[in-house]
Nucleic acid binder design. Structure first.
Lengths: 129, 129
DNA sequence: CTTGACCTTCCCGTGACGGGAAACCTTATG
DNA sequence: CATAAGGTTTCCCGTCACGGGAAGGTCAAG
């Protein structure tokens, strides 16, 4: 399989696949002409990576997940710990965004939104004076 | 005021303040010795920027907010539109994170988390086979 | 006069790629 | 057989919003 096939089948852009090779997540073979020659296992890994990334795991977390996946003597506790740590990161981000959202929504609801210059959003950003 | 004073009073790191000057958000005067000489207006702008950034506005959005703040003939509708657009971005991010969280929490709850290798998290990431 | 605390600019690194150039390879068509 | 079109390679720069750290100038205190 050439890179375009793998890109189509994995749903990842060719650029991303080359990047993943560069940082050592995959090691596709090479054909005589220098083209990357992807095997089924490479495709499977890329699909795995795509799904892990879509759940918000960082590249380094994906690297660990991939290692666990390939380690048949893994303990599921290690995978679960990784996932739970990521879950806590997600929760922290959601909490931060919700706090922003709350403040901003309050300001927006106070703003007339007409052609006059008075604006509680700017007044708040300008701070207490 | 030197940069350390402004950093302390605005809550922004000196590095950030220099960066904001570099990209044209502020234009502090210079003393004879080459040091930045911040006026009250500069400090006020930096505090404004710090608050806008803490609400998640991008640098370019902050630039627009700053321009609106300094434009006494602004229409509050313009500010409100900017804030509402940002609110929609925040909502989109929250929705994306909540979707991730939902999927991941489901997988985590199915994982035994013991020393056996069987792990539904990895099985799911590996895809339908 | 020296020490130490400031300040300056400059350059590299982050994360996870995307865009685009220059050059090579393959396949289809005339 | 020549050529055109499309696929592939590497390489390098740009993103966003700074942070780290080096090399060197400045200032106030002892």
């Amino acid at each position: 399989m050439n890179i375009a096939d793998v890109a189509r089948r994995s749903g990842l852009p060719a650029k991303t696949i080359r990047y993943y090779e560069e940082i050592g997540l995959i090691r596709p073979a090479r054909s005589a002409n220098g083209y990357r020659a992807f095997a089924g296992a490479d495709l499977h890994k890329l699909a795995f990576l795509g799904r892990a990334r879509s759940l918000g795991f960082s590249i380094e977390e994906c690297r660990k997940l991939l290692a666990l996946w390939e380690d048949r003597s893994r303990a599921s506790a290690d995978v679960k710990a990784l996932a739970e740590a990521h879950l806590r990161e997600i929760d922290a981000k959601i909490a931060e965004l919700r706090a922003m959202r709350g403040t901003l929504a309050g300001l927006v609801s106070c703003c007339a939104g007409d052609d006059r210059p008075e604006c509680p959003i700017l007044t708040d950003l300008a701070g207490p004076d």
